[in-house]
Design a binder for these strands. Structure first.
Lengths: 195, 195
DNA sequence: GTCTATATGCTGATAGAC
DNA sequence: GTCTATCAGCATATAGAC
């Protein structure tokens, strides 16, 4: 039954977060005003403060939810027995996730510097946890002799940077299908780690 | 002979640009005020407008000068006859340049969205010119059979993203020397292109 | 060349009516 | 739950004194 009052808590809350995500991703946190976000949602600026104590918390909640969702999705997706299999799963998962949630991903590495120190540390911990998942795969592959690489940490950072880069240029519906793209990146990743 | 007037045009102009570069890199263009820049230089906000028509132009000039300097430095540094040699020179040059001018490089891919459309197009053209230098090396190596790669454009973007990533984590004076770092990245790059 | 003073407008956030 | 009205402060940029 649709309610007849002016109450829209279940709608407005998520709408505010969606609008903030989209606007922050497009223009940057510092360049977006609370009035703009409210305008996108269809309410006045004051109404936003029923859903967030302040603008900083709005950003932080977006980043924290993203990181937690990413870690949960990876926990569900991770599979494979050999390091090579597990690396391939990681590469394909990472690309899929980044293309499906490009705004969240983009935000989460563009707006880190606009977090307060405490909030930044909190996000950094989550991000490091995700990096460690890849690092563990590489370390296992180095031990088992499946991979040939000079430095596990450097390879981890290089792989993540390479994969993140997809966001800066790939557009769905263009020359390359997503599956084809993943295949190309998986080949490059394999070459990077000497598999 | 030192002049005795209050005129400091030769000092203040560059100082403004240096302060803007540093502050924009640390906090982001939108979050930095003209007053902050002036404060860093030791003048009042109004004095900045003797050196730049507005804040937008100040940002644009920093990015344009960076890109032009990068292209000039690469023109001086590029060498090697075989594609493999030329790729190694590129990898080492790119890392050196990025570590030597990390603020400029960081700015030039964090603040693109704060440029006006016309200014953005201008910077994009320069950036694409640089990318094309790497892309030409890969295309030559593919033709000659020195490289094995599925897609020249994808490999170009992947290599650049991987190399840019150095900025996000490498700190001079740490566990790895710069030369060691370059060697590791060169090995990974070689693996990526099947050389 | 730099200063002070100022214009005009937008900012994040709050108080109280409905 | 949302609105209107408002606060105090800071933004970019300019004008005119020195």
């Amino acid at each position: 039954m649709a309610r007849k009052t002016g109450s829209h808590a279940e709608i407005t809350g998520p709408a505010i977060r969606a609008a903030a995500l989209s606007l922050f991703a497009r223009s940057g946190y510092a360049a977006v005003s609370m009035r703009e976000i409210a305008g996108e949602v269809g309410v006045r600026a004051g109404a936003l403060y029923l859903y967030t104590p302040d603008k900083q918390t709005l950003l932080f909640d977006l980043l924290r939810d993203h990181m937690e969702h990413l870690l949960g999705a990876w926990a569900d997706a991770k599979s494979g027995t050999t390091p090579v299999e597990r690396l391939e799963v990681f590469v394909r998962f990472h690309i899929d996730y980044h293309l499906d949630r490009s705004d969240q991903v983009f935000l989460s590495y563009m707006e880190l510097r606009n977090l307060t120190d405490a909030n930044f540390q909190s996000i950094e911990t989550l991000r490091r946890t995700y990096e460690d998942e890849l690092q563990a795969i590489l370390a296992d592959g180095l031990d088992s002799g499946d991979f040939t690489l000079a430095d596990v940490r450097v390879s981890t950072m290089a792989l993540i940077a390479m994969l993140n880069g997809v966001l800066t240029w790939y557009r769905e519906g263009g020359r390359l299908s997503r599956d084809h793209l993943q295949g190309i990146y998986w080949n490059m990743a394999r070459g990077m780690v000497g598999a």
